[in-house]
Computed example of a mutant assay.
Amino acid sequence: MSTLTPIKMMAFLVLCFISGGLGGYYAASFSPVPAQIAIVDLQGLVKKAVEKNQAQTEDDAKALMNKVKESTKELVQRGVVIFDAQSVLSAPEEAYVNIE
């Protein structure tokens, strides 16, 4: 019966760590990275607000912008870039931020 000496055990563990790291790197190279962007439809929000109340004021517009900033604050802190929907040519539906 053969026993592992401490040197053989350390060499075996180092080999395991290296092969595990290389395997993880190889797998990660084929994994798609989700886009770190979010899209807000400001024009659509303004249209909805105007449809509800034709007498929009500057204060209402500022309140709407504050609501948008508050809704996207957490995304920005995570490093997500926020775009206006009018600037986007094409994006998946899940990239759009729903602001109620």
Results as ranks from 00 to 15, higher is better:
S29W: 00
G44M: 07
M9R: 06
A61P: 00
V33R: 14
A28F: 01
A27G: 07
D41R: 13
I99L: 06
V80R: 03
I82N: 05
L89V: 15
A95D: 08
L45E: 08
D41A: 08
S19C: 09
K52W: 03
P32S: 15
P6T: 01
A11C: 03
C16M: 13
L64Y: 04
A27M: 08
V50F: 04
V68L: 09
I82L: 07
K48T: 11
L4K: 01
K67A: 10
T57I: 08
T72M: 06
P32E: 15
L89D: 15
L15H: 03
Q86G: 03
V88M: 12
G20E: 05
A95G: 03
D59Y: 02
Q54L: 08
F83M: 06
E70R: 06
V50E: 00
K47W: 01
Y26I: 15
V14S: 05
S90Q: 13
V46S: 00
F83G: 03
N53W: 00
V40H: 07
N66D: 15
L75P: 11
I82R: 04
E58G: 10
F30M: 13
P6S: 07
G24W: 04
Q43I: 09
D41F: 04
L64R: 00
N66E: 13
Q77K: 08
E58Y: 08
Y25I: 10
E74H: 02
V14I: 12
S19I: 06
N66M: 07
E70M: 10
V81C: 11
D41I: 08
P6F: 00
S29N: 04
D84E: 14
P34T: 13
A28I: 00
Q36M: 05
F30N: 07
S31A: 14
S90Y: 15
Q56M: 14
S71I: 04
G44Q: 04
A35G: 03
A85G: 01
N98C: 01
Q54I: 11
F30V: 06
I18L: 06
K47T: 11
E100G: 09
L22T: 05
L15M: 08
F83P: 04
E58N: 12
S87K: 14
A61E: 02
D41H: 12
F83N: 02
